[in-house]
Amino acid sequence: MKTIGVVRFLGTNCDRDIWQAVEMAGARPQWLWYQDHFDPSDFDGLVIPGGFSYGDYLRCGALAGKAPVMSDVKAAAEKGVPVMGICNGFQILCETGLLPGALVRNENLRFIDQWSPLKLVNECPAWRSPAPEITLPIAHGEGRFVVDEGMEKQLWDQGQVWWTYKDNPNGSVGDIAGVLNSNKNVAGMMPHPERAVADWMGGIEGLAFFS
């Protein structure tokens, strides 16, 4: 059975949802506390859940990016361990430099909480994609992905765009909802697959991400 580390900071609030999604997908979740250090070889994958780490102080994900646990997440990523950041987890991975770009306030200044249709652009070998087109919940105030033109071109050219929004709710550059690092083992997305893992939630398309 695969072991998936679930990283928790003060203010993380999607951790129990990720834990349950990982269990439902047949893997064994294990907590990783923000002050902890760990051995990357003990894990088959790492998930950084959403929430409001450090109360979103300074910039979303900036302070969490400097927490002790992140030095080991970086080491794990460099060794090829699959890492996925969702929502605030995506912001944290961008702030640490494990993923390109940054996430800033939504264009319309509103916190957006809705189901958003997404399109798969490039498969991530580490985290499965359920289908080429899916719909997942989004819930964020600062989810507008920004990157300079040169880097945007690189993302498209090198197959690092993971998912795009079909309706671009937040003003992200190139409709980008999720990206991959150049090695394709680190992935981040603003939508919440863990909130779509049972029929009563409104969809089960998120489960495949954890399988």
């Binding site: 300074l58 302070l63 400097k66 770009g101 800033v104 920004v146 990157v147």
Partner: peptide
């Protein structure tokens, strides 16, 4: 440069 500002934005 360590943490206060993000040069991308």
């Amino acid at each position: 440069e360590f943490v206060l500002y993000n040069p991308l934005i």
